[in-house]
Computed example of a mutant assay.
Amino acid sequence: MVIERTAGRLPARAPTPRGLPVSAAVRLRALDGLPEPENPLAASTDDARTLSVALFARLRALDKGTPEHAYVRNTLVELNLSLVKFGARRFRGRPEPAEDIVQVGTIGLIKAIDRFDPDRGVEFSAFALPTIVGEMKRFFRDTGWAVRVPRRLQELRIDLAKASDALEQQAGHRPHRAELAERLDLTEEEVAEGELASHAYTAHSLDAPVGGEDDERAPRGTTGR
């Protein structure tokens, strides 16, 4: 799966996720003796995990903004891209294109790589998956409206839902508009506006898995392949 550098030279490498070729000199400096994955996207779970541990340690030693740092970071993205695909499986059947969901999840993966601290002793897959799925859910919240609704009304819809649930638990019945207005320190007209915004929202469960429950459990101690 990996190839060692030979006589100070490395074979040609496919473009990085950004589409820019990386010179052999940059890769040599970036890896500093570490083996280079010949095809990170096709790496096995064990190889991806082992190499990721080494590359995270190397990433910390490199200065941000340098070509070497970007190369190691992009290689980590490629090695762990299957985590994004694993996270996307729970949203099968949604109207959004699968390519868009994977693209958004990749943003979450990059954020997880930037925030990951190997010293905490946490498996990267366990750390990254919540960030990846969270980024996907944020995407669905922003695109799940039947018509364009201002952010203020989107937030009001959420506040109304929370207040309605809380008041129902206290009073034992669905709250009236006046009760919601008093709870949120709003006018009844503002509550009515928020209720109209709710009707424009395309309701999809973001937490209920679409497939079977077993599909949503990443194998323990793996990168989610």
Rank of each mutant, 00 (worst) to 15 (best):
I3Y: 13
G8M: 13
A14P: 04
T16F: 05
P17K: 02
P21V: 11
V22R: 12
S23V: 11
A25S: 11
R27T: 12
P35H: 10
P37G: 03
L41E: 11
L41C: 03
A42C: 04
S44V: 08
T45S: 10
D47L: 10
T50D: 15
L51E: 01
S52N: 02
F56K: 04
P67N: 11
H69Q: 11
H69W: 14
A70M: 07
N74W: 15
T75Q: 06
V77S: 09
N80I: 04
G87L: 00
R89D: 03
R90Q: 06
F91G: 01
F91I: 05
F91L: 04
R92L: 11
D100I: 11
Q103C: 07
V104D: 04
I113E: 04
D114M: 07
F116D: 01
P118M: 02
G121F: 12
E135F: 01
R141I: 12
G144M: 08
W145L: 06
V149Y: 09
A161L: 09
K162D: 14
A171P: 06
A181K: 09
T187H: 04
G194D: 06
G194K: 07
A197T: 09
A197S: 05
S198I: 14
H199E: 15
A203S: 15
S205C: 01
P209W: 06
P209S: 07
D214G: 02
D215Y: 00
T222P: 06
R225W: 13
